[in-house]
Design a protein around this nucleic acid. Structure first.
Length: 824
RNA sequence: GCACGAGUGGCGGAAUUGGCAGACGCGCUAGACUUAGGAUCUAGUACCGCAAGGUGUGGGGGUUCGAGUCCCCCCUCGUGCACCA
């Protein structure tokens, strides 16, 4: 019987059946080994999924399907990280409520993910904007609050004049607003909520070592955390004010010939002398207005002004001038530095420009190491210090001077981090309200747990007022409340939480998505977590991945979970570029959607093509030409079965391997080698070579069928093929399985194991080299011994051409590979 | 500037980790079947050479019987960090 290949008919049919019969439903707990396969929590944007997004969801789906067939209990869920600015901005422009946009966009994403055959357990779908979810996001806020890890502080916050609104850090791109490319942002002081992630800096850094994550991501996190060791040293100003500085090089203290404070340093007004005041204030004013990019530019020549004040260098009681300069940042260390022009390039340039003394304090072993016009940062012997220290190696002196500082109470060893606390306040509407009220008499009060969620009011005018406040501040019914402590009048915090708060715990929700008494059930979470495979783009290297690790550690400390790391293994998929090598973007009108590809070819072809085109972590361009090749492959597979459907079996066909003809053996061997190869490749996520292996098998079966028709070996090989294809081409596998009489569903069949005896080659090609150059190859039995191999090699005519009249001084035999004869 | 990555046919990429370089696919060439072909099938396809043979994994050195793979130097591209004291 001939059945025409018609994916447009069978793909929707199976899609519906899989949904209706819930074959991807996950058991809560079971005796099976578990596998938690998770995608990054997506924001459902208005434009829907492109084929680029599919490079994230299809590989994880293949993995999930594979582990299910391997007998694992697989948790493969999906949900929506749907709070955030885009929905709110869209609401402002179009007047559509963000809740409406979110609903619509999530529905589009769900439809498209179902289209591409993603095998999520849809009963576990979650949405961060539902009160059932953000109630627990607020609950975690309170947990952090109770543990002293959430605090409010006045801080300088990014502000865009054209938006008339504050911006999140991630919305500041190169010092300008993300929506107004040429509008530099400025800073505005505002009361803000912070999470004290810095308290976990050390653990966040150290625990990276145990993670199976891409090395570049770990490096980015290490850089972000930015640990440096050194000393905090107190310099006394002449008027008796202590100035704390942080230095990584206390061994250069004797070379400190001036100090620099950040222009924003609080001691500046106090230190500045009357005659310098006008100039200092002008400089501060200039630094304020200067954009961050200008100020941070390494290209820029250093500038600064003298405050008129002096401080005492604690190691030698020398009087050194205090300057202010914008190359010193208030946000790092203490906002003040000691300057050693001899040992620091920045200080060197500054000292040169302003004529400050450059004093040599470390003599390198090789005098040429000191380059004219540059600071010397290397090691050497101390000079120009005190008698006691001169002549010491600087490393040794480092320890000595730290001991001395600590003994004298003039400083101490310290560790400093570049990472700052996580600012979570957003003066925006579309986020989870921060569950805190401000009482006139009791002050700041957390909302009691039993009053959660603090509901986000629906009927709100979300146009920004330009006053730096959330639109919620204008909703009186929301703002006015009673104090949980005294019952008196109180006002609610009107800021909402950063969207990254929602994604910092969502992976704990999937094991028990509908639980209404707690964010998660301990036992279930301990069964499923940590996530076995986490896949998403590299762009979240520091933000989300660091925040989620932080929250997990807080929960561990609170005794809520036993583990300290949420994601055991992380992989980043490569970006998919447009055919011209540029980014796919709506503005360039070059976005290809899965819908279009499914329409023109099929979902299975899209899936296999994306897996085949390059290793999954490579950046690669879409190619219209190559997808046709995968379409051909799919049709070839279909033709292996077509017109012979009733001759196949879904049960293993008994094969008496030893009695097979050589050709039949070769086919059977290829089939079992393919099982081995595809299994190996899926596990190491080398999907492109797995597909290539399937193609090779088809390339063997097609001509075999033409010569021998439907033999047992052929039927068995095709049965193997269809199993191996199931994770990659789930629709076609299901349809073929159905036509050959398989019971629903192939996706609930067990993965096949290969028979190593059958997979093993019985003859091998032995390469024979003379002096490392290939001169012959011999077909020999696989179990050939070294002596036999050497005998065969040396007796080969082609080889003798190169060996006669010469002496074999060495013969190398690599079992099952080659013989190399070294002659002279 | 600093720190990682990566350079393999006309193209995307293989090479199970030091052992036949170019699997698989695209493209291309020739042929078959066709009214037709953007269908299908067959053969070929790294480069030079009629051939024997030689040369080839960005360039140059090195280790080794043997290097795409390991080591050193250089070039190009990509990514991240970028006055962090």
């Amino acid at each position: 019987m001939q059945v025409s290949y018609n994916p447009h008919e069978y793909e929707p049919k199976w899609r519906q059946k899989w949904l209706d019969s819930k074959i991807y439903k996950t058991d809560d707990v079971s005796d099976k080994p578990k596998f938690y396969c998770l995608d990054f929590f997506p924001y459902p944007s208005g434009s829907g999924l492109s084929v680029g997004h599919c490079r994230n969801y299809i590989p994880t789906d293949v993995i999930a399907r594979y582990y299910r067939m391997r007998g694992y209990n697989v948790l493969h869920p999906m949900g929506w990280d749907a709070f955030g600015f885009p929905a709110e901005n869209y609401a402002i422009q179009m007047g559509v409520h963000p809740a409406e946009t979110t609903r619509k966009n999530a529905a589009t994403y769900r439809r498209q993910l179902q289209l591409i055959g993603a095998s999520y357990d849809w009963d576990r779908e979650i949405n961060s904007t539902h009160p059932d979810y953000y109630k627990w996001t607020q609950w975690f806020f309170l947990l952090l609050y109770k543990r002293g890890l959430a605090y409010r502080k006045k801080s300088e916050q990014w502000w865009c004049d054209r938006c008339e609104s504050v911006l999140a850090n991630e919305q500041v791109i190169n010092g300008c607003c993300w929506r107004h490319e040429n509008t530099p942002v400025t800073k505005k002081p505002l009361e803000q909520w912070f999470f004290k992630i810095t308290a976990y800096a050390e653990r966040l850094l150290n625990d990276l070592d145990e993670l199976d994550w891409p090395e570049p991501i770990k490096i980015m996190q290490r850089n972000w955390i930015g640990r440096s060791t050194g000393a905090q040293v107190t310099f006394m100003a002449k008027n008796g004010v202590p100035i704390e500085v942080f230095t990584t090089r206390p061994d250069t203290l004797f070379g400190a010939t001036f100090m620099v404070l950040a222009p924003e340093h609080p001691l500046v007004p106090e230190l500045t002398t009357a005659d310098r005041r006008a100039e200092v204030e002008a400089y501060i004013q200039k630094a304020r207005t200067e954009s961050e990019i200008d100020r941070m530019s390494t290209e820029k020549e250093k500038t600064g002004v003298f405050t008129g004040a002096y401080a005492i260098n604690p190691v030698n009681d020398e009087k050194i001038p205090i300057w202010i300069a914008d190359y010193v940042l208030m946000g790092y260390g203490t906002g003040a530095i000691m300057c050693v022009p001899y040992g620091d390039q920045r200080d060197y340039e500054f000292a040169q420009k302003y004529g400050i003394e450059i004093r040599k304090i470390i003599e390198p072993e090789n005098p040429d190491a000191v380059v004219e016009g540059q600071a010397y940062t290397g090691d050497g012997t101390m000079v120009n210090c005190s008698e006691e220290y001169n002549g010491l190696p600087n490393r040794e002196f480092y320890e000595k001077i730290c001991d001395w500082l600590e003994a004298e109470g003039r400083g101490k060893r310290t560790v400093n981090y570049k990472m700052r606390d996580w600012l979570i306040s957003r003066q925006r509407y579309w986020g989870a309200p921060i569950p805190v009220v401000l009482c006139e008499s009791c002050g700041e009060q957390p909302v009691p747990e039993d009053q959660l969620p603090v509901l986000l009011p629906e009927d709100v005018d979300f146009t920004p007022a330009g006053d730096g406040k959330s639109p919620l501040a204008r909703v009186e019914s929301f703002v006015n409340t009673t104090c949980p402590q005294c019952g008196g009048h109180a006002t609610r915090e009107t800021d909402t939480m950063d969207g990254f708060a929602c994604s910092s715990w969502y992976f704990l929700r999937f094991p028990n998505p509908r639980l209404d008494t707690a964010p998660f059930d301990r036992e279930t979470v301990e069964y499923w977590l940590p996530v076995d495979l986490y896949v998403g783009g590299a762009e979240h290297a520091v933000m989300h991945l660091l925040y989620a690790r932080f929250w997990t550690k807080v929960m561990q400390d609170a005794g809520l979970v036993s583990f300290g790391e949420p994601f055991a293994a992380l992989r980043n998929q490569g970006m998919l570029l447009a055919e011209d090598g540029g980014k796919m973007s709506k503005s360039k009108n070059n976005v290809i959607t899965p819908d279009e590809v499914a329409e023109e070819y099929s979902v299975d072809v899209l899936r296999m093509y994306l897996m085949f085109l390059a290793p999954f972590d490579y950046e690669v361009s879409w190619s219209e030409a190559s997808i046709a090749g995968v379409d051909r492959f799919a049709r070839r597979v279909w033709r292996l079965f077509d017109e012979h459907w009733d001759q196949f079996s879904t049960q293993p066909i008994p094969i008496d391997f030893d009695r097979l003809s050589a050709e039949d053996k070769a086919v059977m061997r290829k089939a079992h080698q393919t099982i081995e190869k595809v299994t190996f490749d899926i596990e190491r996520m080398q999907f492109n070579t797995a597909i290539a292996a399937l193609m090779e098998l088809v390339n063997v079966l097609t001509p075999y069928k033409d010569r021998h028709g439907i033999t047992d070996v052929y039927r068995e090989s095709c049965r193997i093929l269809i199993h191996l294809m199931a994770p990659f081409a789930p629709y076609m596998a299901e349809e073929i399985w159905h036509h050959i009489g398989g019971a629903y569903s192939i996706h609930q069949q067990a993965w096949l194991g290969h028979n190593p005896d059958w997979a093993k080659e019985n003859t091998i090609t032995l390469v024979v080299q003379v002096n490392g150059k290939k001169r012959d190859d011999l077909t020999v039995p696989a179990d050939v011994t070294k002596d036999q191999a050497l005998e065969l090699a040396t007796s080969s005519e082609k080889i003798q051409k190169y060996t006669t009249g010469k002496r074999i001084i060495k013969s190398i035999y690599v079992p099952r590979r080659l013989v190399n004869l070294v002659v002279k």
